[in-house]
Nucleic acid binder design. Sequence first.
DNA 1: TTTTGATTGACAACATGTTGTCGTTATGAC
DNA 2: GTCATAACGACAACATGTTGTCAATCAAAA
Lengths: 146, 146
Amino acid sequence: MSDQADLLSEAALTVYRLNGQFLNLGDALARPAELTVAWWQVLSAVEAEPMSVAAIARLRGLTRQGVQRTADLLVDKGLAEYAVNPAHRRAKLLRPTPEGLAAIAQIEPGLTAAAERVMAVLGPGGLEEVIAALKRLSATLDRLTG
Amino acid sequence: MSDQADLLSEAALTVYRLNGQFLNLGDALARPAELTVAWWQVLSAVEAEPMSVAAIARLRGLTRQGVQRTADLLVDKGLAEYAVNPAHRRAKLLRPTPEGLAAIAQIEPGLTAAAERVMAVLGPGGLEEVIAALKRLSATLDRLTG
DNA sequence: TTTTGATTGACAACATGTTGTCGTTATGAC
DNA sequence: GTCATAACGACAACATGTTGTCAATCAAAA
């Protein structure tokens, strides 16, 4: 295998691993609030501003149908609700209920503590640099396929 | 939310997005060989050296049970086979069949082409830097939870 | 040698995400 | 204003990964 192919494979495998690690960390953080990473991901998307399911999917880079199921579950659990969309009769807007906002707020302290521990290891500016690298890679892949 | 928490959330969300992007790219590359990313990930792990299912799981950062199912599917499709393990009666060694090796080889040209396109965008050394950042983050998360 | 704990494979239930399809609704071209 | 196209929600089938449990196997301590 070419050296270049090896590098891209290594990047992909490391991303797969990071994905699992963040899922683990996120589940640990979200469990006290009785949330999962998937629910948190959708709920936090509409925390500041209600959005249609399709808009959440675009924002998060997921498929519309996957977000749809999660959103329905959130509504079922009373953590979010559908509001009428003045701009679209069918595409209702998802927004958190007070319970949903409380769940998100409950995660906050643990998330901040975890972030502080990460920054303590990576040093000041270190996490920003890593994020910049992640985004460079993501933008590159977008150009490749899109 | 604290600035630090925002940063960690941004890192996680970007990793989730990257995960999806690499799954898309990988599936596109693997489809001509009638492989999926999951199959490719397991099959490539034993390309150079046969390994037990548990060892593959550790290498790839997956659960033993998930790899087990994929490995059984690979054997079922004739892309891999179980060989007796002299060191362990129960833990057989997974190894690719000639068909499995051919499937991996078939992916190679497309993978190299994709890698070249990525390197063309990120510049010389750019991909290496990104991988280094990915690994720094992964090692940090390991220290946090393990 | 015996026993105790860790590793491993097997199996099942479940969560999550994708793909495909359909009818509904909005948008823009004509 | 009509019509074609795209966007959207609904629903189902499926792939993949996790969690939990159990018995078999190995390794190390007693």
